[in-house]
Amino acid sequence: MAKDNDTQMLKGILQGCMLFLLAENELYGYAIGEALSKYGFDEIPKGTIYPLLMTMEKKGLLNSRMKSSPDGPNRKYYSLTAAGVVAKQTFANQWHVLSQSVERLIQEENNES
């Protein structure tokens, strides 16, 4: 159960991060994985990205189109839709509140000890 919650939480965070990455640039699967690794998500198996991309596309947060890549065959590039931009802002707000709350809690715990 705890592991399930961890996975769900991680997926939520990953989804939020992907919204940020795709707001900057149109990217394909491997490039998203590389960008996530650059930001410290290198331990996460990149197989996790594909179901998330599909779910986000299904929810209308992403658009995709086939485009030739600099090195090799055509790739599926993802970009943010208008709904994706709204979802990105919502995630940013939620994360801000959540991180502040958790930070305050940890701070108080540290002060007491």
Binding site: G29, Y30, K46, G47, Y50, P51, G72, R75
Partner: peptide, 30 residues
Amino acid sequence: EILNDLIQAQRNGISAREYYGKTPQAQAQE
């Protein structure tokens, strides 16, 4: 899409297992 990414990972010295994950069944089910 996964295959093309695995080929790119291989070119960068990353194995399919390292890239896609040690538990491919879980990812595939998702």
